[in-house]
């Protein structure tokens, strides 16, 4: 049986993980790392920007993305919770 479709919270976790590894990356690169079509990434990404978890800075015509301290804190909490939930056989949320 193939892997189940990722939940929204798993996608957010993957986005935050990708941004924690590579700072200042363009959204298209993030879509590749997070294994997500760009049109599916966009709404989630801008929601994370609105919530102050991800910072989008314009550099000429390109956009660069990085995690804010609030984003790092959320990622840390998600990692801890993921450990618990995996032991209980659950998806991230």
């Amino acid at each position: 049986m193939g892997r189940q479709r990722r939940s929204r919270s798993e996608i957010i976790f993957d986005i935050l993980e990708a941004l924690s590894v590579e700072e200042g990356i363009p959204p298209t690169r993030l879509a590749t790392i997070a294994n997500l079509p760009y049109d599916r990434l966009q709404p989630i990404l801008w929601e994370l920007v609105e919530k102050g978890l991800v910072e989008a800075s314009k550099n000429g015509r390109s956009t660069r993305l990085s995690l804010t301290p609030k984003g790092f804190r959320l990622l840390k909490e998600l990692r801890r919770i993921k450990k618990i939930l995996l032991d209980f056989g659950l998806d991230i949320l």
Partner: peptide, 19 residues
């Protein structure tokens, strides 16, 4: 405490609060 942590995360990033 675990339930509160999960609820707080659900509020912040969405998802279903089943756990």
């Amino acid at each position: 405490y675990i339930a509160l942590r999960l609820a707080s995360l659900t509020l912040r990033i969405g998802g279903e609060p089943k756990a």
